[in-house]
Write a protein that binds this DNA or RNA. Structure first.
Length: 884
DNA sequence: TATACAACGTA
DNA sequence: CGTACGTTGTATAT
């Protein structure tokens, strides 16, 4: 019998997959009208449909655990003991899932005293004996031991439940470097936290695999335990019984009394009426259609074509043919054409354009007459759909090609859908959103295949991803993309090209000075302790502080005890020692020198630093800066400000202008909370912290002392971060009780602020996401996590997000309008940098007044809040001098 | 040579 | 037990 003729058995670990689905999908988005949660069921059925479609199993079953107790818990009562209470939202979903499966005529199997994975093991062995091919789906890694040439494991990825990784023997070897049957031996040594099975401390996957290679098996390793040297060897000898116990428990039972004949698991037609009833109760409309379509029943709604799209042939056009094609396509594709510019060393080298049905590849060089129609189209406002447009836009600008009409960047669109992750490549999105693979050339291939994506192919995929994203994104997010992100992209591309002048000589001076200071400090520090250690090594410092000097232990971290600045300051207070102060100063000096060195190395040929702004890298909507990061240049210390002094006005310009929003986040808080006290504070024009201090301490603003002001300021700023009384007391070095009183008094006077912050979290739990003033969303799946730490973290992040995110939105509006004004008025003064709430410009002094006026009105007018937005300006020939 | 962590700079 | 980032060096295993 050939492989393709073998019957295929699909067996799913029901609990494990339902649980994965539960955490993959937001609880609050899947609820029936009567409040029954359905996210786990929905995720499970969606995955099942995908599997049925893709794998076409001839036989199938879903195995469920009966309880959390089995022969394993009898043998080792702590087994899986670390698992917390089942979340209440999950309870009740499993029986409903079983109803749905029953309606779909899918057998479910449960076995008293065994776990679902034992059922998988038993069925897979029987299936192999009877000539089946078997697919197992489980979220438990122990099932890897079942993989062989006839048995494949589909293992859910971390992201979601529908994204399954295929483990065949080759994949197991690739991922773990071992044979599938050896996996439980590795797991036994390493341990499994989620099953509460501690392994051999200090032994990780790598070590375990290495030993298996050396000694062949766990038994071999244990027999040779004496031969293994070092701390790990000691650990092994001391904890070998853990490994033995783990191995006993993680062996799956392949002859469990499963009272089912494989024949009886053959795929049967669904009970249509029953499926309609069950799915109606669950309020699964789309899933119902998909199930019915799969069965060949007309579900009413037209199903999306299941056939995988094939890439249309590529055309090569030029001159009038190209002109005609563009003219036709602009009309027939009013939502835009896919565009990809291939860039080499910052220069455009070729381009591809795609409509839904046609691909055009242009071996185009800027200025070539053959491609004039293309350059005209680039310069027009005809909509373009791109992926990661910024480097392409920059390359066009360098080549002097006009560009307009950027309608959609899929990298940014995907980010708006799921902010916070790494920036996605086109291949990532093709995989994730289209469920296809972007053709790639494999560098290991001897004969390079010509399947490597051409610019035209990439343009075509980009267009298809845009189609997908336009339905996946809500209208608010689409608005953010169109009105904020696309214009901002062009602005920051221009800023990156401009760069900022940084003076090499003064950096070199600084570096030398800091270097010799660091050396002196190190020498003095070594004299204090009578030996030389690496002051940059937390590990060696711990030795010095806690062993040699016998200082009290500080806060614990993963590798021992903290030696950060806060911990060292605490030590200095309790156990004064000259070494501590020298160490802190040394840290300061080396840190600054490191920053100076990095900046110096980043100065380009033109004497300027061209940072790269990352537009789709943050969870809140802020822009970040990298290579180098210009958003964390020191400012708080005199020494640090010397670095800012090396940021200079460039040749041909007269001054640097800085413009920053004053207390923008507090103003947004006032706006969003509608707190009358806070609004009055900002409208009064009084110093904010003085005003708030006067209210809280019941004195006149003039009588607010510096200490009172400091406390109030910390409190106000901490608010937007979810600061606790504990944190406040720590920061201000006051008693927790005093911090608590301060917070109570604060909220008594500014109660609407407290209500607002509470409501943000409540609403986020209902919606599953937060929203900024302008409609930018950020999802918060962890708000419903059973894990306290995760949930608390998510709550703080959630209450901060609308504030930080709205500030980011406002700054982006300001940037695009300022840029627009400077350009349209023909000014040569230009915007160079953005640091979250600050903008830095290079100004021609003859334009100074006009530029200041534009910057002030555009920044202050970027949003219409219930409180005014205030802007502070400063100018000087360097960045430090330009601060006010 | 790549990855994880602690530490620390900014808003 | 305060949000959001990026970069660095050390330590660790390869």
């Amino acid at each position: 019998m050939s492989e393709s003729e073998k019957p295929t058995l699909l067996v799913i670990d029901g609990h494990s997959l339902a649980f994965r689905a539960f955490y993959a999908l937001p609880v609050d988005s899947f609820q029936t009208r009567d409040g029954q949660h359905t996210n786990a069921i929905h995720g499970f059925i969606a995955m099942l449909i995908n599997l049925l479609k893709a794998e076409k199993p001839t036989h199938l079953a879903v195995a469920f655990d009966i309880s959390r107790y089995s022969f394993r818990t009898r043998e080792y009562p702590e087994y899986k003991g670390t698992r917390g209470e089942t979340p209440p939202e999950f309870i009740g979903q499993v029986p409903l899932l079983q109803d749905a499966l029953k309606a779909m005529s899918i057998s479910t199997i449960s076995l008293e005293d065994y776990e679902a994975d034992d059922v998988l093991a038993t069925l897979s062995v029987r299936a192999t004996e009877q000539g089946y091919r078997t697919l197992l789906v489980s979220g438990d890694r122990d099932t890897i031991q079942l993989v062989n040439d006839d048995v494949t494991l589909l293992y859910p990825s971390r992201q979601g439940v529908s994204d399954l990784t295929r483990y065949d023997p080759a994949k197991v070897r690739e991922r773990y470097g071992i044979e599938p049957h050896q996996y439980p031996e590795v797991a036994a040594l390493v341990g499994e936290t989620s099953d509460n099975l501690p392994g051999v401390p200090k032994v990780g996957e790598k070590t375990a695999v290495k030993w298996l290679g050396l000694y062949g098996s766990l038994d071999g390793i244990l027999e040779n335990a004496e031969k293994i040297t070092g701390k790990v060897g000691e650990s092994l000898r001391e904890h070998k019984e853990n490994a033995v116990r783990n191995r006993r428990l993680n062996r799956l039972v392949t002859d469990a009394p499963v009272d089912v004949q494989l024949d009886s698991l053959g795929k049967r037609p669904i009970d249509e009426q029953e499926v309609r009833d069950v799915f109606a109760r669950l309020e699964f409309r789309t899933l119902l259609d998909r199930v019915l379509t799969l069965e060949g029943i007309d579900g009413g709604e037209p199903a999306v074509s299941a056939t995988r799209a094939t890439i249309p042939a590529t055309q090569h056009l030029l001159d009038e043919e190209l002109r005609g094609w563009l003219a036709r396509s602009v009309v027939s594709s009013p939502d835009g054409l896919g565009l990809r510019i291939d860039v080499l060393d910052g220069r455009p080298v070729s381009a591809g354009i795609a409509s839904a049905t046609e691909l055009v590849l242009l071996p185009w060089q800027a200025g070539g007459a053959d491609y004039a129609p293309f350059e005209e189209w680039l310069a027009s406002d005809a909509p373009k759909l791109m992926h990661d447009a910024k480097p392409q836009v920059k390359a066009l600008a360098r080549a002097g090609i006009a560009f307009d009409g950027l309608a959609f960047d899929t990298q940014i669109g995907a980010w708006l859908l799921a902010p916070g992750g790494k920036e996605a490549t086109l291949a990532d999105l093709t995989r994730k959103l289209l469920d296809e693979d972007l053709p790639t050339s494999d560098p290991n291939q001897l004969v390079p295949d010509d399947d490597a994506p051409s610019a035209a192919t990439e343009a075509w995929y980009t267009g298809r991803i845009v189609d997908h994203l336009r339905t996946a994104l809500d209208p608010g997010s689409l608005g953010v993309l169109r009105d904020i992100e696309m214009p901002t992209l062009l602005v920051i591309a221009a800023m990156e090209l401009r760069g900022v002048t940084v003076d090499h000589a003064s950096l070199a001076d600084l570096s030398a000075g800091l270097g010799s200071r660091a050396a002196d400090l190190a020498a003095s520090a070594f004299a204090e302790i009578g030996r030389e250690v690496n002051l940059g090594s937390p590990k060696q410092l711990q030795e010095v502080l806690f062993e040699q000097l016998q200082m009290p232990k500080t806060r614990a971290n993963k590798t021992g005890y903290s030696t950060d600045a806060g911990a060292l300051a605490d030590l200095q207070a309790s156990n004064p020692h000259p070494f501590l102060d020298l160490l802190l100063q040394h840290r300061d000096a080396t840190k600054l020198r490191q920053i100076v060195e990095t900046l110096d190395k980043s100065i380009a040929e033109d004497g300027r630093i061209h940072t790269r702004y990352v537009q789709s890298g943050t969870a809140t909507g802020r822009i970040s800066s990298t290579d180098p990061n210009l958003q964390n240049i020191p400012v708080r210390t005199e020494e640090g400000r010397r670095i800012r002094q090396s940021f200079r006005v460039g040749e041909g310009y007269d001054t640097l202008l800085t413009a920053d929003y004053s207390q923008i986040e507090m103003r947004i808080m006032a706006h969003l909370s509608r707190d009358e006290g806070l609004i009055e504070a900002f409208r009064s024009g009084e110093d904010l912290h003085r005003f708030v201090g006067a209210r809280i301490f019941g004195v006149e603003p003039a009588d607010v002392t510096n200490l009172m002001r400091t406390k109030v300021k910390a409190m106000s700023y901490g608010l937007a971060y979810g600061l606790s009384a504990f944190g406040l007391s720590k920061q201000l070095r006051i008693e927790q009780s005093e911090a608590k009183v301060l917070m109570t008094d604060y909220f008594e006077r500014f109660g609407a602020v407290r209500d607002y912050l509470r409501d943000v979290v409540v609403q986020a739990k209902v919606d599953g996401y937060t929203t900024t003033i302008f409609g930018r969303r950020r999802p918060f799946p962890d708000l419903s996590s059973p894990n306290r730490v995760l949930r608390d973290n998510a709550e703080r992040a959630a209450l901060n997000s609308p504030i930080q995110g709205s500030a980011a939105d406002i700054m982006k509006f300001a940037m695009m309008r300022v840029e627009q004004d400077l350009t349209s008025r023909g000014l040569r003064s230009r915007m160079l940098m953005t640091v979250h709430d600050e903008l830095i410009f290079e100004v021609d002094s003859s334009e100074s007044d006009e530029v200041e006026e534009i910057v002030t009105t555009r920044m202050a007018g970027a949003a219409d809040l219930t409180v005014p937005l205030e802007v502070q300006l400063g100018h000087g020939t360097d960045w430090d001098a330009a601060a006010h």
